[in-house]
Write a protein that binds this DNA or RNA. Sequence first.
DNA 1: CGCATTTGACCCGCGC
DNA 2: GCGCGGGTCAAATGCG
Length: 297
Amino acid sequence: MEEGGEKDDWVDDGSQEELVRELLDEESLFFVLSQGTIQPKAITSEEEVSKQRLSNVYSGPRIEDIENALSSVSNWKDQPQQTTRIKSMLERNLSKIESKYTLKVRSCGNGMADDGYKWRKYGQKSIKNSPNPRSYYKCTNPRYNAKKQVEKSRDEADTLIITYEGLHLHFVDPYFPPLNDQPFQHDNNAPTKKPKKAISESDESRAFGLPQTMQIQEATTNNINSAVSLEGCPCPQEVASEGLLEDVVPWIIRNPFHNNIISSNSTSCSSSQTRSPPVSPSSLSWSPNYNPWPVFI
DNA sequence: CGCATTTGACCCGCGC
DNA sequence: GCGCGGGTCAAATGCG
């Protein structure tokens, strides 16, 4: 790829706004459905697509660009936490090409950054003009077609370039601390390969391709139901009564305030067990037609 | 033994 | 049509 150099090629054609919207999107499903009934907001014109192709894939907008983009979109909540979150994501040179999202994350030691999902490697290729091979991963849940590609940055040895396809970015971003933050301790404490028996319940969740965050939420569900008492929470009633993981999880993940807590706590991703339960249900938005697990069960 | 990873073969789209 | 490069498949291999 043409990654070696200019990073000022960001195409200011509205894709920037799409990225910000993607990060703030609280309506979309975790995964992009293969049927295409629900897709990430598509780039509208062919010209835009080709312009993006021509542009540097890994280039990213500058912070001030994002601030401008944020201020230009009227119906977004202008919470400073969200601006911070956007900044942290875009410092990773986040970019979007069609339905693929590319970002840079700090790799940890010998491992790859764990985004909380369970992936199976299905291929590896050496890439022309790149000293580092690219690895191909599929989400282990066969019902989804989420994929990702992982490649070491040629410039920065400790940086990984990850391209997600079929998975909305705002569901993995809490796992990635800002590039310029303190060393990312995540993998030191939580290697990608988890001991299987020690976390049997977690593995069960992971078997569905759920991120670890969701498992945590199962643990916090009780807190939500009792301590927070769901005041103003638009969660379906059965969540409170049955505590179904499939129903609870999206609510928490979608809670921007909660995400912000995770982000601010993310210098140590492995300490996810200590993540605070959501506190501010008032900012939730549930679509009446929203079904978080359209192909589940 | 079961599961994940590795790795060469194969497929496909694109440019010449 | 051909070659090249990127993406996927699947048999072989490794590992717990």
